[in-house]
């Protein structure tokens, strides 16, 4: 309890992190209350096409090529962008941290085996692999999440493995080994906590990357066609960039804000977990 309080105190000392957290909370609330804010489906053709923002009451964000409300799209899009971003990152972390820890800690054959496996995934350009996976599984929210998760874990594995490799030869780990602590205990209590901060920094980046990957897939026509996402909106706006800047501008801003917020929060967490560093940098 006391520890939690300390953590929060340190987290809140980073103003950027607090702002980030507020934005995230706002986006999450938006996603939850989307049906109340905009009861109609974001796909519904509600007005004439290409209404610029602030021109017509009730359509503050303008309308798109077919006369759909951009505002509705933004609010409903928060749901799937967050869902895809978070879920696929969890998938990637589960795979990546596990494999990376094993490889880096045990070294030798285990390391070889895992790293060869990682290299398989890593050596194929991951964006292309994501497209192939989505194409095979048919584009849908699930296949997009899975594909992004599957292509995103190798950096985590390599990072964690690199940290393990480097930390393993450190004195404090060597000492624990000499003292005869179990491997699991050393991994979980000695090494893993020390790798957390780069992993956390990476996680926040990964959620962002996942959101960007999803938009890139939609850009190429491989998103879930039944779900309105920010990525889809930018993809659809691309051909009319000159005529309707607002169509890509607003979803772009949403992505930017969300990604920015995620990063700020990540940094706040980093500060809160690495008190020495945090004190130094303030």
């Amino acid at each position: 309890m006391q520890k939690n309080l300390e953590f929060w105190k340190r987290f809140c000392r980073n103003k950027g992190a607090v702002v980030g957290l507020l934005i995230i909370v706002a986006v999450i609330l938006m996603a939850i209350f989307a049906p109340l804010l905009y009861p109609d489906s974001p796909w519904k053709l509600v007005q004439r096409p290409f209404i610029p923002p602030m021109e017509l009451d009730g359509y503050w964000f303008g309308t798109d090529t077919l006369g759909r409300d951009i505002g509705a799209g933004l609010v409903h899009g928060a749901r799937v962008s967050l869902l895809v971003g978070l879920t696929s990152t969890v998938v990637a972390l589960l795979i990546g941290v596990t494999l990376g820890a094993f490889a880096g800690y045990y070294g030798g054959l285990v390391d070889d085996g895992v790293m060869r496996f990682t290299e398989l995934f890593q050596t194929v350009p991951n964006f292309a692999l994501a497209i192939v996976l989505v194409a095979i599984m048919q584009p849908s929210v699930e296949s997009v999440i899975l594909a992004i998760g599957i292509v995103s874990w190798p950096p985590v594995a390599r990072l964690v493995r690199g940290e393990f490799l480097s930390l393993r030869s450190r004195e404090f780990v060597q000492a624990s080994m000499v003292l005869g602590q179990s491997n699991a205990r050393i991994i979980l209590t000695q090494i893993l906590p020390n790798t957390l901060s780069p992993v956390i920094v990476m996680t926040s980046l990964m959620v962002a990357t996942a959101i960007l990957l999803e938009s890139a897939l939609s850009f190429l026509g491989l998103g879930d066609p039944d779900v309105m996402s920010w990525g889809y909106m930018i993809g659809a706006a691309r051909t009319v960039l000159r005529q309707a800047w607002w169509m890509s501008f607003f979803p772009g801003v949403m992505i930017l804000l969300t990604v920015l917020a995620l990063n700020l929060v990540g940094e706040g967490l980093n500060d809160a977990m690495n008190p020495r560093l945090a004190r130094k940098s303030r």
């Binding site: 980046l205 962002a208 960007l212 938009s215 890139a216 850009f219 990525g231 930018i234 691309r238 960039l241 890509s248 772009g252 992505i255 930017l256 990604v259 920015l260 990063n263």
Partner: peptide, 15 residues
């Protein structure tokens, strides 16, 4: 860095 990181590649390209 954050802004560069958070902007979709193809969007920057078109802009």
């Amino acid at each position: 860095a954050l802004v560069c990181y958070a902007t979709p590649l193809f969007w920057v390209a078109l802009m």
